[in-house]
Amino acid sequence: MLLLQLFIDGLASGALYALTAVGFAIIYNGTRILHMAHGAVFTAGGYALYIAVKLLHLPMPVAVIVALASAAAFGVLIDLLVYRPLRARKSSEAALFIGSIGALTLCQAVFALIFTTDTLYLRQGPLPLYDIGEISLTIMHIIAAAIVIVVFPILHLFLTRTKYGRAIRALADNPKLSVVRGVNVERLYMLIFAIGSLLAGFAVSLIAYDLGVRPEMGFPVMFVSLVAVIVGGVGYLPGAAAGAFLLGLLQNLSLWQLSGRWQDVVVFGALLIFLLFRPAGLFGHMLSTRRV
């Protein structure tokens, strides 16, 4: 039945959004940078996978590792080349944000110049379907579920049990610190960008394999992730994940009644409604906006 199928599809896209959203949230919580270039990191991972598979002819598992490493490295590079110099100048948050927009625009354009604006496909034809009762799953549904089930618990353990993970959380509570638990903040930033970008790398590997790679593919995903962070509540990682699943479901279930071209309106309508009635998000976390 259609509704159930849309629900399953919604969960699968929710899982992918959750990976990018939690990645975005880790970076945002620790650095307070509205990291729009996360979208470019996402796309970079996609092209890395394309190069690894199509040009270097690496076996798939190796290619995915290359894509993950590339995404992480790309995120760290943006921090080093764009944000760190701006921090060194004691730039305002607005200036960092504009720098981030600049990085996103620059990367998207460079991708288009190198790879053209055509979609580059990693595979041909439809994916095999596994029918279970009235719904059908693809390998993508299953891998998406598997990644989320494996990655999030590991992330949780990392953030709660290790020295660096705890330092990241401490930094999120107090982003003004310069040394957290004996770790230099600039070093910690690199780690934060690496982890956040790595999570986006997981998501893009799946999407790139399924749907191919385009220069601006990261933008809508990054944007839905951003909305998920707001909807789930700023500063709370499970909230970002929950927000992502909610949006994934909303997007897919809306297909039941509306055609796909209304998806933007649905997602951002949800954002505006949240901002209007519950700016603190699902779980009541919010940055204080008025300082006395």
């Binding site: 730039s91 960092l96 720098g99 600049g102």
Partner: peptide, 13 residues
């Protein structure tokens, strides 16, 4: 577009 992006970054810096 690449130039606009680069300009935004460099101007901020």
């Amino acid at each position: 577009e690449a130039l606009y992006g680069l300009l935004l970054i460099l101007l901020m810096m």
